[in-house]
């Protein structure tokens, strides 16, 4: 009986959210990307054109982070955010 689970491609997706001026710049608020193995936050930001953003903050699963080497996994929610301006 072959093991159908072995060597299967990574399943699942990462949700990416954009807020404020970044959503305007991107022309979208939300997208999903495939959860590839060994995908880091840095790679994701780069793929989405982060080099062109003036300044931004990142959160993974609703927690702010500066760790660009962080590995992303299926079902993670990544937020790309301009500096906050509440209050």
């Amino acid at each position: 009986m072959p093991d159908l689970t072995a060597n299967s491609a990574p399943t699942g997706e990462i949700t990416v959210l954009f807020f404020g001026s970044l959503a305007l710049k991107r022309g979208q608020r939300k997208l999903t990307v495939a959860a590839e193995a060994e995908l880091t936050l840095r790679q994701l930001v780069s793929q989405l054109g982060g080099a062109q953003w003036h300044s931004f903050l990142l959160a993974v699963n609703q927690e702010q982070t500066n760790d660009l080497d962080r590995l992303l996994h299926a079902n993670d929610e990544v937020a790309m955010m301009p500096p906050f301006s509440g209050g």
């Binding site: 807020f19 404020g20 001026s21 959160a59 301006s85 509440g86 209050g87």
Partner: peptide
């Protein structure tokens, strides 16, 4: 706290990026 404001001005609607 991740909250952003967009101001309506005579020049249009402007996101305030830093407060």
């Amino acid at each position: 706290v991740p909250i952003w404001k967009r101001e309506t001005t005579p020049d249009g609607k402007i996101w305030e990026s830093q407060h």
